[in-house]
Write a protein that binds this DNA or RNA. Structure first.
Lengths: 183, 183
DNA sequence: GTCTATACCGAGATAGAC
DNA sequence: GTCTATCTCGGTATAGAC
């Protein structure tokens, strides 16, 4: 799916990949849609876990930035968004998870930013979240196309603001993809 | 392509849609890739024209915001990005146009923002561009999924900053998709 | 649970008549 | 320039043996 796009994912190829028969895809997932939904769910649950961990850190803002800035799932997410364009079941799935993500981010960061003394009227927490997430994803997409004009400057600006609120990043808090904590 | 995804675009369907034979697609475009590239080019050229017009306005910042924020092209752009994941020719095409867009934006807005007295060290023009473009596109994607939590607040924050730099928006300057000027 | 066999469809692409 | 005819491939999905 990552290498050749969602259209290249077929029961025959999945079967061949795992060394089994293509018909088993239908036995286990019913339809191809079922397979895609299950695949999306597993990835989304992992991402939710990772986000929660990052937000429980002593530096939740740095944690959020790291979680959202990291590459891994970005290309796959794009593929699912394109896939959702014409598969209603998948569209509903993505919408549901997006809202869950957003709600967790809002719940935690509203308190955190308030604690840092950020004025919620000029910068509501949800706008900080949208800005960081949007800018991050945009840069990740551009990187896929080897377009990185201004990325370094953008990252510098964002990290300057995070630093002003939450202080210098303490590297020991970084949460890995597997939930591990770097030393 | 918009309604059912790029995978649903086939020579047979294109032929049927225009009431002619499927083989003509190959006569005119060589391959399906050729058709996609031509389609992308035409859309991109139109968007480039529109951007240029918006930046020639007496309020280039508002013009930029409108051009990037509106975009009926967003869903189509997502589809092309997904398509580019596994078609090298299209990937190169998108990369090239992205850089052209970015360069025009930088050329104009660097001068404009400097004229407004914005400090280029704390907020280089390219970071303003990336932020506005990234946040916009993120919200447009979310809207496709009926997720709009915090969008109104986000728009308010961005427009407040534009207003602080460029003053109240003068509606007579709005450039339509067709290049027309609203009254 | 895993397989084979198969039905059915539509994809990309080309050859060649007109 | 437009068509018909056709090749080859691989897709989704199901039936039914083992």
């Amino acid at each position: 799916m990552l290498e050749e796009g969602y259209a290249a994912v077929s029961s025959r190829r999945v079967g061949a990949l795992v060394g089994m028969n293509a018909a088993l895809v239908y036995y286990y997932f019913g339809t191809m849609d079922g397979l895609f939904i299950e695949l999306f769910r597993r990835g989304a649950e992992r991402s939710l876990d990772r986000l929660s961990l990052a937000l429980m850190t002593p530096q939740p803002l740095w944690g959020f930035w790291d979680a959202v800035h990291d590459q891994g799932n970005s290309a796959l997410t794009m593929e699912f968004i394109a896939l959702a364009n014409h598969r209603k079941a998948i569209r509903a799935e993505i919408a549901g998870y997006s809202k869950r993500f957003r709600q967790i981010e809002i719940d935690v960061l509203t308190r955190v930013l308030d604690g840092y003394g950020l004025d919620a009227d000029t910068w509501p927490a949800v706008t900080v979240i949208l800005a960081v997430a949007g800018i991050s994803r945009f840069m990740l997409i551009e990187e896929q196309f080897d377009v990185d004009i201004g990325h370094a400057e953008m990252i510098a600006v964002i990290e300057r603001h995070i630093r002003a609120l939450e202080g210098e990043r303490i590297t020991g808090n970084v949460i890995g993809v597997d939930g591990s904590r770097s030393t």
